[in-house]
Amino acid sequence: MNLADIIHYAFLQRALLAGTLIAVLCSILGVFLVLRRLSLIGDGLSHVTFGSVALAMLFNFQSVYTTIAAIPCVLLSALGILKITEKARIYGDAAIGIVSSLGIASGILLASLAGGFNVDLFSYLFGNILSISPTELLVTAVLFVVVLLTVAFLYNDLFAITFDEELAATSGIHVDRINAILVLLTALTVVLAMKVVGIMLISALLILPSVSALQLARGFKTAIILSACLGVVSVVGGIFLSFILNLPTGATIIIINFLFFTVAFFARKLLR
């Protein structure tokens, strides 16, 4: 079976399209998150997604409604992380830890009430992009437009707070507001990414393309573009490779990303 044959499968076309959209979002947001030392926020929010998926399973929601139901839960948790950081006088990593463990604990309890871990729950834990439905693709496309337009409009504000919050504030930028928007955009992206690589590996899709790009980029815009390109290539390559070799797609995508990082790391050493 060659690539031309494979590409005719409708489910694969949907997977490639959805995967590309989500890879672009994860890779772009990842640059801001990594540079702001918020890399693990994706991990924390994905654990909340686990809780919301388990809740949806308990009520026998269909797949697309599971995704939609996860959105408010993860958005509220994202705001919760910010509020805990602000009000409880603790650092962001501890706030992420609190929300993350709460998400996992809720998920385990709800999964237990729903009769234990079943095949559906595993598909969210480890990803199953090949099963993405036309409706899920539509939801992904809509959210992709929302997140990308927001990032495009706020690009310079996000750049400024990523470089230095206080300098940004003295340029009249509302740092708290932009921080909240960044975290909310990340929350939306995490919900979308759970089908691609699975809850367990979402943070890798946020972190790896951006850290690879940061090894090589000479300019902020270059870093963003390079990260998006690496993310897309890894997801598309991972989908094809996993289909041909009958491997789990999410894990294949992440391994390809790690290989990119290794190459970028050594390339940087050689170029210096």
Binding site: L35, R37, N156, D157, F159, A160, F163, D164, E165, E166, L167, A168, T170, S171, G172, I173, L214, A217, R218, G219, F220, K221, T222, A223
Partner: peptide, 24 residues
């Protein structure tokens, strides 16, 4: 800078231009 990252990927020109945001 608050938490200066020596690996921050911005060029000098990009950083200087950021100051113009105050006018926007």
């Amino acid at each position: 800078l608050q938490l200066f990252n020596p690996n921050f990927p911005a060029t000098v020109e990009e950083i200087v231009r950021l100051g113009r945001l105050a006018k926007k």
